[in-house]
Design a protein around this nucleic acid. Sequence first.
DNA 1: ATCAGTCACTTTCATTATGCAAGTAACTAA
DNA 2: TTAGTTACTTGCATAATGAAAGTGACTGAT
Lengths: 156, 156
Amino acid sequence: MQRTSFGSMACPIARSLERVGEWWSMLILRDALRGTTRFDDFQAGLGIAPNMLSRRLKALVAAGLLEKRRYSDRPPRYEYVPTECGRDFRPVLQTLLAWGNRHFAPDGPRVRIVDTETGETAEPIVVDRRTGRPLSDPVFRTVYGRPAGQPQDGTA
Amino acid sequence: MQRTSFGSMACPIARSLERVGEWWSMLILRDALRGTTRFDDFQAGLGIAPNMLSRRLKALVAAGLLEKRRYSDRPPRYEYVPTECGRDFRPVLQTLLAWGNRHFAPDGPRVRIVDTETGETAEPIVVDRRTGRPLSDPVFRTVYGRPAGQPQDGTA
DNA sequence: ATCAGTCACTTTCATTATGCAAGTAACTAA
DNA sequence: TTAGTTACTTGCATAATGAAAGTGACTGAT
């Protein structure tokens, strides 16, 4: 009666959720990517109980999203900084933010992504990097299995 | 000792997670957006216990992401189809898929988003719709508070 | 008419996870 | 000496998750 693990599923979405799918994890990551590094700052910013924060930070460190660094020896003090993997998570939070603003902010968004040069509010959409084509286009489909005739490793 | 609710937080990410942040919810949504509509098909595809599926479907319907429709009167049979809000969730799953492929698919991706016209594998990135600029650019920042001069409910 | 089969669930109950309150440890500064 | 800061851990109650089994409303074949 353990919680079902998504880690062994072939789907990359399931594997992602194995790392960040627990209650609080994404919000901790959100703050970490905003610049929060200290235990007490996470705690104050999130209103999370210290035991929960401790557990989640451990899990995020174990999953390779955060790195625990000692920034003081006497007294021993630690900080949590996003790894490259953790920083790569930003797009997920950006689309989640856009979705929340569109559907769950009846009085208009209270949080926005802004171009600090022009002051304009950005509207995040997902496109294909090469072609620039929006992935909302129905020509884009999710397919299962590797590209035919291409042995796994050195391939695209 | 209830689970902390994110629904009353101002952050749109938190509000989003209130709806889809539970174990299984996003995977159910993933299948629903792939075309799965029937209870037993969700169950078989996910390997989820029927009681959990029942709870999650109820929650997703209550959150406005799925619509429960009777497709047969005798016997009474139901199907679950994504609402507009549910369909708008696709970009989140696309970025989550891309992140999973980048970091948790050591032998290369087993699931890809493909342009069915060219057969090319898409590489999802998030850009600003108007300017086309990648939101990974550091000029984009998350800011709190509404745009100046637009009072909606008195809060600044 | 009986029986197997399908579909969409619900009920029961054990195991996990979550969360509040409180406590601990190692310091620094007054 | 006392208070304050930082970074946690422990204890324990409540809530969520999950496997197994059961229910209800049918259809279709013998």
